[in-house]
Design a protein around this nucleic acid. Structure first.
Lengths: 172, 172
DNA sequence: TTTGAAACGCCGTCGCC
DNA sequence: GGCGACGGCGTTTCAAA
């Protein structure tokens, strides 16, 4: 189900360009990659159908929206049983403050990335939505000073051998 | 510089729709929101210029690209001085395995979200790129069982009072 | 499977309200 | 500031190779 898909040089080149700017036109993609625009459309459509491309997302600035403070909350849920964590996950997911939620190995079961207005807002969130819940045994709050998005996501160089070569041929 | 921008009902409605699918056409946005397409274009252009909208990003499935294992690495850097953390951050940012990097409060200075092929690949990454660095005092590795993207990012309800109302009027 | 070209539909400026 | 229309362009289809 989650098998890795064979991606050739053209696919990877397109992915790298689209990760720089997802609004790049097929016409510009084609000029850059060296194929016809219709071919680019074909490749992108295929990668959407095979699940490599999940979707196009808008990147917003939380600070410009009145959420100038971000934090990571490590949450220990006890007892860690399905009938408790189901509602917990669903509740946390739908909070307007939540940006991402991870279920992790280790002593802290969940990590929640939240964006709030200020420290008072953060305190309210932690008290009202986390520590007040019976199944939440412990919450550890860490503020985010700074964060970086990292380079384009590409397959490992030597992996995914198969019908297509899976490494980039031309650096930027 | 990072003042929150006044966003009215139309802006927020557009943002919610674009966060579902960033490729929604202005024509479809207009039909949904109840204004003219040119008005939608106007609003989006303004939000791009004011920095609310940072850009359009492609969402990919790491598993389909041969990176079926994700992990969070908590890294303690000692001594925590600018001349050491600058190159460290730059190196980690440009690793093909890195997806995101956070500078945090608390005993662990950095959190790195990585995507790798398997546990052997993860071990290689930790040994070669983290514990082998002189300034890295400690690395704690936690695997990601599951992760969730959360709802659309919107301003806090009561905050950002001003010329425009900043709360959503119509639920989906 | 890629391509070139043609038809369609969207974008984005503009003048007007 | 929002609206409607028009010109230009990007997208998408399709038949051929």
């Amino acid at each position: 189900m989650t098998d890795s898909i064979a991606l050739d040089t053209v696919d990877l080149h397109i992915l790298r360009l689209l990760q720089n700017d997802a609004r790049t036109t097929y016409r510009d993609l084609a000029a850059e990659v060296g194929v016809a625009p219709s071919t680019c459309l074909d490749r992108v459509t295929r990668m959407r159908r095979t699940g490599v491309i999940l979707g196009h997302q808008l990147r917003l600035d939380p600070a410009r929206m009145g959420r100038g403070l971000e934090a990571l909350l490590s949450v220990q849920v006890r007892p860690h049983r399905r009938e408790l964590i189901g509602p917990f996950v669903e509740r946390i997911r739908t909070l307007p403050e939540s940006r991402a939620l991870f279920h992790l190995t280790g002593p802290d079961d969940y990590l929640v990335h939240v964006a709030v207005a200020d420290t008072a807002d953060l305190q309210r969130l932690v008290l009202d939505e986390f520590t007040s819940r019976r199944e939440v045994a412990r919450v550890e709050t860490r503020l985010i000073f700074q964060q970086w998005e990292c380079g384009p996501l590409l397959p490992p160089s030597a992996t995914t051998a198969g019908p297509g070569t899976c490494q980039a041929s031309e650096p930027d």
